[in-house]
């Protein structure tokens, strides 16, 4: 048998031996390549063009756009005010997101495990999704007051649906042969869920999270705008400033909101890169 084994290793066909090295090409790597003008110059030029257009617009139509300098001044002078309000909005966004994530994930597991539950829950979820949240928000403010509760609910609701749909799709995306292999060793339903279905759903979940992380800021702001009596948050800051015709302050808040959304997007991308290091989309084209 040993002789046969030796022959075996020698006669191993070549195509088997040529294994593609683990090529992993991240979308951008934090190396020196990033410093090449080809990487940053287009964006810098684009920003310069936009700033020029803005300045020209602010100059010719002062009621439409505030000068960039004014926005900068406002941010600098009232830095504490903006940081505090940004923090409030960010907290609302993240807590609402957490709420929506937990609820959607649990329901995704339930609906994918029990077809009867799916038939009951999915239509309701769809109806909830097509109902404009901007319309629900005032009702929630009436019901729950000006505190954090309506903001968390609105944010949670806005994050809920994409997570539910994607996760429930991912949980059911396990190929038949895989399920058959584990059925012949009598893996329990819980084992199949934990070892196979949930990891399989991760790329689907992250596809939803990439949408929902920035969206959570939208939810928080919509809720703040609807609660006219709120005292904190960037949404409140915007409605306050616009009622007083302070255009520079409005745009200062908007700029911070854009920044928050971008930071959240970066956060979820970094998280995805860690969790889904095995996934094709993380491994370059050849890998």
């Amino acid at each position: 048998m040993n002789a046969a084994e030796d022959v075996l290793t020698v006669t191993e066909p070549e195509p088997e031996l040529i294994v593609a090295p683990p090529v992993r090409r991240p979308m951008w790597r934090p190396g020196l390549g990033f410093l090449h003008p080809r990487m940053w110059l287009p964006l810098v030029l684009m920003l310069a063009v936009l700033a020029t257009l803005w300045t020209w617009g602010a100059h010719s139509m002062p009621y439409l756009l505030p000068p960039l300098g004014d926005i900068g001044d406002t941010l600098r002078e009232d830095a504490d005010y903006y940081v505090n309000n940004a923090w409030v909005t960010l907290k609302e966004a993240l807590m609402g997101l957490g709420l929506g994530l937990v609820a959607a994930f649990v329901l995704a597991v339930i609906t994918s495990e029990f077809p009867l539950a799916r038939r009951a829950i999915m239509p309701v979820a769809v109806i909830l999704n097509v109902t404009p949240l901007v319309a629900i928000a005032p009702a929630l403010v009436v019901a729950f007051g000006f505190g954090a509760a309506p903001k968390l609910i609105v944010t949670g609701l806005i994050c809920f649906f994409p997570i539910l749909i994607n996760t429930s799709m991912g949980l059911r995306a396990v190929p038949q042969p895989v399920l058959q292999v584990y059925r012949t060793v009598n893996a329990s339903r819980l084992e199949t869920l934990w070892y196979i279905r949930i990891p399989m759903a991760m790329p689907y979940l992250f596809a939803a999270l990439r949408i929902v992380f920035p969206l959570s800021v939208v939810g928080a702001v919509v809720a703040e705008l609807s609660a006219a009596g709120s005292s904190e948050g960037l949404g409140t800051a915007i409605s306050l400033a616009s009622s007083m015709n302070r255009l520079a302050a409005v745009y200062a808040s908007i700029a911070i909101l854009a920044l928050l959304g971008s930071v959240l997007l970066l956060l979820v991308t970094a998280l995805e890169r860690r969790v889904l290091h095995w996934h094709e989309s993380r491994q370059g084209n050849g890998g």
Binding site: Y182, V185, A187, P199, W278
Partner: peptide, 23 residues
Amino acid sequence: PQAPALLPWLTVLKNVTLPLRVN
């Protein structure tokens, strides 16, 4: 089965030992 039916997030060693860990 006809397709290898491996779990793409597990290494080869973890793929072959998972059936031992269930049931």
